[in-house]
Amino acid sequence: MAKLIPLQEPLPVGSYGKRSNGWWGLLTLIVTEGSLFGYLLFSYFYLAAQTQQQWPPDGLPRLAIPGINTLILLASSGFVWISEYCLKSKKIRSSIILMAVAILLGTGFIMIQLSEWNKKPYTMITDLYGSLYFTITGFHMAHVVVGIIILSLLLLWMMLGYFDDKRHVSVSIGGLYWHFVDGVWLFVFATLYLSPYL
């Protein structure tokens, strides 16, 4: 009779990076949130493909400011990533500063996006395109706002000394969420701003 041999190696205790349940939970959340954006963009293409009117109704979108804004959001993701890296290398001060920069960039994205909204000659209820444009960007905006709140909490917790090089699973998970929010923007951007050029 083969006997099962108990483990001799030590195991990490508690939430530990990519082996924590939270990390896995967030991956599944990304799957479902990703599908949500997928269905949203499907709705856009479905309606755009069948429309009789000019699409978008007021001509091709300008790319300069949204393009810069996209770079800002991506840069913010980069800073979160470096911040986590610094945390792992025991540079807590740099980590805090980088996280703060990431939050500022994210806030900058929101401000620019709000001014973009203001400049639109149509609203959510003017026409079908307006409904789609504001709902899709609004959905994404809601995710950015939640992301900024999460990053701010992470910053607060860093300053309270909750994290160090070994224990910082919240930063990894919160950061992953932020990368998702930024990544999904690329799809939104491609759909709303680039696809009309095709």
Binding site: T28, T32, E33, L36, S43
Partner: peptide
């Protein structure tokens, strides 16, 4: 995880149509 977002979105869009006057399902506006 893959399917529920679809129906949640559909109901949300319907609610927007009904509450705010968006046009996702509004035949007269495309």
């Amino acid at each position: 995880l893959l399917a529920v977002p679809s129906v949640s979105l559909a109901f949300f869009l319907l609610w927007l149509d009904r509450q705010t006057g968006t046009h996702f399902f509004d035949v007269s506006n495309g």
